[in-house]
C-alpha cells in the first residue's frame, strides 16, 4: 500500500477510539492489506461499534425523547421571553399574536430562570446519556433550528435561540461527566417545578412546556446517592 492510500486509511481510522485505532492500523499494516480491503475493514468495525451503541435505549431517549422535543419547545420559550421583555420595556410594542402579554417583571424573571433550568438540564441529560452519539442528538436539534418554526414578527429570528448557550453548557457538562448529588438534582427539580406551577397558576405556561421538566426528574432518578459533587471523566 502506498503512503498516499495509507493516509486515506489512517484518515478513516480517525473515527475509531484512540487505542482501537492504534491496534487496527497496526494489524492492517502487518497484514499488508490492499486499500479497499483496509477501508472496508475500518468502516465495518466503525459501523459495528455504532450499531452496538444504538442497541442501548439511552441514545434513542437522548435524541428523540429529549433533544428534538426540547429544542422545539425551548425555541418557543425563548421567543416568549423576548416578547415579554420587549413589552415590559415598552407596552406599545407588540402584536396580538405574540405569545405573551400579561406578565409582570416577576413572571418574566420566573420564565428566564425556567428557560435556563430547562435548557441546561435538557443539555446535561443529552450529554450524559449519549456521550458517543451526542452528535446525532445535536444533529436532530438542527431540524427545528434550520426552519423558522416560531416566526414572531418583527422579532429577530435569533431571539428564538436564547436557549442555545445554556443548553450547550449543559451538554458540555454532561459530556465531561460532571456529577451532582441526588439531593442537588432534587433541589433543582423541585425549584423548577414550583416555578412552573407559579407560571401555570398565572396562565403564563403553555401546557406542552410541562414536558420540559422531565429531564430534571430523570436526572434525580438516575443520580447516584453519594456521587462526588464535581468529577471530570
Amino acid at each position: 500500500m502506498s503512503e498516499h492510500t495509507w493516509a486515506l486509511v489512517e484518515m478513516a481510522a480517525g473515527m475509531l477510539a484512540p487505542e482501537e485505532r492504534e491496534a487496527v492500523l497496526g494489524d492492517l499494516r502487518e497484514a499488508n492489506e490492499n486499500v479497499f480491503r483496509a477501508l472496508v475493514d475500518v468502516f465495518g468495525l466503525y459501523l459495528r461499534r455504532f450499531g452496538v451503541l444504538w442497541s442501548d435505549w439511552r441514545p434513542w431517549l437522548a435524541g428523540f425523547g429529549v433533544a428534538l422535543p426540547s429544542c422545539y419547545l425551548l425555541m418557543g420559550v425563548s421567543g416568549s421571553v423576548t416578547c415579554t421583555f420587549l413589552r415590559l420595556m415598552d407596552p406599545s410594542v407588540g402584536h396580538w399574536y405574540w405569545p405573551t402579554g400579561h406578565e409582570r417583571v416577576s413572571l418574566l424573571l420566573c420564565h428566564i430562570l425556567l428557560l435556563l433550568a430547562w435548557s441546561w438540564t435538557a443539555g446535561f441529560a443529552v450529554g450524559s446519556m449519549s456521550r458517543r452519539t451526542v452528535w446525532v442528538s445535536v444533529g436532530l436539534c438542527l431540524l427545528p433550528l434550520s426552519r423558522a418554526c416560531f416566526p414572531i414578527e418583527p422579532l429577530p429570528r435569533l431571539c428564538t435561540f436564547l436557549f442555545l448557550f445554556p443548553a450547550a453548557v449543559g451538554i458540555l457538562h454532561g459530556l465531561q461527566g460532571i456529577r451532582l448529588e441526588r439531593v442537588m438534582w432534587g433541589a433543582l427539580a423541585v425549584v423548577a417545578t414550583v416555578l412552573m406551577y407559579v407560571a401555570w397558576s398565572n396562565q403564563a405556561l403553555w401546557i406542552y412546556n410541562w414536558a420540559l421538566i422531565w429531564p430534571a426528574w430523570y436526572m434525580v432518578a438516575s443520580a447516584r446517592r453519594n456521587a462526588p459533587v464535581v468529577q471530570s471523566a
Binding site: E20, A23, V24, D27, L28, V40, D41, V42, G44, L45, Y46, L47, R48, R49, V52
Partner: peptide, 8 residues
C-alpha cells in the same frame, strides 16, 4: 475474518 467481527 473481518477486523470488525474480530474486535467486537
Amino acid at each position: 475474518c473481518s477486523i470488525g467481527a474480530l474486535y467486537t
